[in-house]
């Protein structure tokens, strides 16, 4: 069943899934991941472990959905070739 309420599409009778435009979970983040493309092998390991999830990978292009990323640093920690660096929000 799909219901439209306040211009929002509901995926069930009672609730809709949060998306980048409805959630501000990333607004209080104090650091953000940044990709170093030369080092990335496209291995998907960061995607596998992101607890949000906030990572999509197309080819070797790793994309961080910064509206919902909380800057936990898990992705940078599990990336063996160290292709992700965590950057403080002030200097991002």
């Amino acid at each position: 069943m799909t219901v439209t309420l306040h211009n929002r599409r509901l995926t069930g009778p009672m609730a809709w899934t949060s998306t980048a435009d409805t959630s501000t979970a990333g607004s209080w983040r104090n650091q953000r991941p940044r990709l170093i493309p030369e080092k990335c092998t496209g291995c998907n390991v960061c995607w596998k472990f992101c607890p949000e999830p906030a990572i999509t990978i197309v080819g070797k292009k790793v994309d961080f959905e910064l509206d919902v990323c909380k800057g936990c640093g898990v992705c940078a920690e599990v990336c063996a070739p160290e292709a992700i660096e965590m950057v403080p929000e002030e200097s991002a």
């Binding site: 899934t17 949060s18 998306t19 980048a20 409805t22 959630s23 979970a25 983040r29 092998t41 496209g42 291995c43 998907n44 596998k48 472990f49 992101c50 607890p51 949000e52 999830p53 906030a54 990978i57 197309v58 080819g59 070797k60 959905e65 509206d67 919902v68 990323c69 909380k70 800057g71 936990c72 640093g73 898990v74």
Partner: peptide, 29 residues
């Protein structure tokens, strides 16, 4: 892209309110 070792379909989306790095959030996903 390297071959995926777990299904690509996401039935949990970002924007939830678990603490950063929550293992329970990854577990649900």
């Amino acid at each position: 892209m390297a071959k995926l070792t777990i299904p690509s379909e996401e039935l949990m989306v970002g924007g939830h309110v678990a603490c950063p790095g929550c293992g329970a959030a990854l577990a649900m996903r």
